[in-house]
Design a binder for these strands. Structure first.
Lengths: 338, 338
DNA sequence: CTGAAAGCGCTTACAG
DNA sequence: CTGAAAGCGCTTACAG
């Protein structure tokens, strides 16, 4: 029995003012006398009036809705990002519209977002087709790829310095005395995985080394476990593995210990990337690279708000610094050596 | 430079039909001839027309927006629920508006939801004040408390059978030979924690036992760790602890092993509740109660949709069955004994 | 500062 | 089946 709700006209009638006056009383910078605003607010209070955000969006052309697109939340780094992003947006008067997608239907989902007249779009654990990116640009809707980038796209991006993170890890492992170092990738077409890998092999090269094995885990627990089995089976097994993210690294550690009876880090060192909360748990104590989630969210919000306010879309690319977090899953360099 | 977007009037002009005809061509059951619909769709395609969902919400009085309110996502059970809920909603043509809240500002946030004219509200890891629940009921907006309930409220709820889960765990531990069994609660005012506790002590009673210690972890890692320290310090320490959820149980296991040198389950058994993904990881191998996340989400969606379609709010309470998942963190009963 | 009026982009009776 | 028209609840020039 959805009763007709209280409108600004109802408030106007009760306060004996015009409907415009009611509207002005509820918009921050509008010109209303203190006296009128008081009367209006009192009447509004009495009727339980609540401005209709949909009507406001309609007339003002700004919905104050930001769409977030994600393909999965299994990797705990995404919930962390999601929560922080939602809070940061709310603090500035925006709300987050969440869309989960499956690989393949992303374009349909983006059309949905555009139908809702979102003021901005954030893509996490998902990507945009070039055509769609152009379409967003055409409607003046800024897009930020969070934790990924696509150079050819008319979309901004926010990432951490994945290349540098990979390098740091390579140096750490080489300096720790490892000589056969393998890598487990995320997806071949993931910019994040590619950059981490590039930095890693670059770092290895800087120490005069090359990699000893490579597999693709597909960012899934099952895929990572399978990769671990492939890498650990041969007789000349690696003495260290860099796994492209923490989420997969946990699965690799489980397989190494359970199926191969290896001790970590004595027999095998494992390092990851992200520094998700679980990396700090004793069961894993994962040495990893911390991505600055908070700063990444801030950069995302500031790119978005800047472009929404100016109603102009330009491509930005923010790359934030990373930090090595040393725990117990990998043998360490001997003191000041590095 | 947000260009004025393509409207149904533009499409009408190009297709040489009325604006109403365009509207009808885009609404599933409307009466339009095949021929006209074809012409309209062609023109729409050519112009890149996208129906404006905000305008539709405005005129139809249905936004197809569902608000989700959550206070934290640290406990991985919530991201799991969140992802599934978003997908289930999308599959039925609804979108999820996400609101993160801090204890205290929930009422403000609910007002925000109502301003956005959401068709329904789901509260996860957060609760509603009685006044607000009434206000929602007044506007005809159905509310579902997910994974919690408040008897006095004009709001529906979906939970698992927390009481039965607690009982199952008590029987399992007693039958496993444990004699000093402690409990770590979530929050004192959490219905979930209270029910799990009530079922647990009931189960203990059914086996002629009482509890040996109790602490409150506050659903946080730090609080759980502190509780573990209190419980494990005394000379007559428990031989088993039921922790109100998995998220806290991991922290308890870490403290028991690291700070007290206890072996799990030889020296101390730990059981949790939820069966979050990490419970299956080897580092913890937590014996726990599986909450049926998928069924809980389905129940939530069906309560919501039923009430939204009929535009009538009634209070429903769904309680879904749980299942014991035996892993390695607790000593087991001797075969068929139980 | 204040009010009357236009208009955002749709859906939906109401006639034909 | 189709079109003209009203109207959803606001914001925002435009006058005064």
């Amino acid at each position: 029995m959805a009763k007709r709700s209280v409108t600004s006209a109802d408030v106007a009638r009760l306060a004996r003012v015009s409907q415009s006056a009611v509207s002005r009383s509820f918009s921050p910078g509008a010109s209303v006398s203190e006296d009128m605003r008081r009367r209006v607010l009192a009447a509004a209070e009495r009727l339980g009036y609540r401005p209709n955000a949909i009507a406001r969006a309609m007339i003002s052309g700004r919905s104050r809705l930001i769409a977030l697109l994600a393909a999965y939340l299994d990797n705990h780094f995404y919930p962390v990002l999601l929560e922080q992003l939602a809070r940061a947006l709310q603090a500035r008067g925006y709300q987050m519209l969440l869309f989960m997608t499956d690989p393949g239907d992303q374009d349909i989902v983006v059309q949905k977002m555009l139908q809702y007249q979102v003021d901005g779009i954030v893509m996490a654990s998902a990507t945009l087709s070039p055509g769609l990116a152009d379409e967003c640009a055409k409607t003046g809707t800024p897009v930020v790829l969070l934790n990924r980038y696509v150079p050819a796209l008319a979309a901004s991006s926010v990432t951490s310095d994945n290349i540098e993170g990979g390098r740091l890890l390579a140096h750490f492992l080489v300096d720790g005395g490892h000589r056969r170092i393998a890598f487990i990738a995320g997806h071949e077409d993931s910019s994040t995985s590619r950059d981490r890998e590039a930095g890693f092999f670059k770092g290895l090269g800087e120490r005069g080394m090359t990699g000893a094995g490579r597999a693709v885990g597909g960012y899934s627990v099952a895929g990572a476990a399978e990769s671990a089995r492939r890498l650990l089976s041969p007789r000349k097994r690696p003495d260290a593995i860099f796994v492209a993210n923490d989420h997969m690294a946990f699965a690799v550690m489980d397989v190494a210990r359970r199926e191969f009876g290896l001790r970590i880090p004595e027999d095998l060192s494992i390092v990851g990337f992200d520094d998700v909360p679980e990396a700090a748990w004793d069961g894993y104590a994962l040495t990893t690279i911390a991505q600055p989630a908070k700063e990444m969210v801030e950069a995302t919000v500031s790119i978005l708000t800047e472009q929404m306010e100016r109603r102009t879309v330009v491509r930005r690319a923010a790359v934030l610094p990373v930090r090595l977090v040393v725990r117990g899953s990998a043998r360490k360099p001997k003191a000041a050596g590095c």
